[in-house]
């Protein structure tokens, strides 16, 4: 059987990759995708801990499902915002969306 820590390592790596994407990509849609990666990293951890520590309850899986829901909601609203901004400014580069400053 695979030890728990290996799943955690995969989760950590996926999370770190997501962090990098969120911080470094210019395209806002790519940022959204990176956020999805981070959410997935969280889900891996939830399910892994559930499987190894409390397989008799359903809490881990239930939480993973709620994370799904939040991910869908976030993607829907995020993309809608991006599309709206694109329509107005012909750009989806996050660095261009800097009206709200000093």
């Amino acid at each position: 059987m695979i030890p728990l820590w290996m799943f955690l390592v995969v989760g950590a790596a996926l999370f770190a990759i997501g962090v990098f994407g969120v911080l470094a990509r210019r395209n806002a849609i790519a940022i959204l995708m990176s956020i999805e990666l981070m959410l997935n990293a969280v889900n891996i951890n939830l399910v892994a801990f559930w499987r190894y520590l409390t397989p008799e309850t359903m809490s881990g899986q239930a939480f993973a499902i709620f994370v799904f829901v939040v991910a869908v909601a976030e993607a829907a609203v995020g993309l809608a915002l991006i599309v709206a901004i694109y329509r107005r400014r012909q750009s989806v580069v996050a660095e261009d969306m800097n009206v709200l400053k000093w």
Partner: peptide, 17 residues
């Protein structure tokens, strides 16, 4: 100091991280 308020969301995020 106000340069910190650049309006660039990713820069804010970087600070948060």
């Amino acid at each position: 100091f106000r340069a910190i308020q650049s309006g660039n969301i990713q820069q804010y995020l970087l600070m948060v991280a």
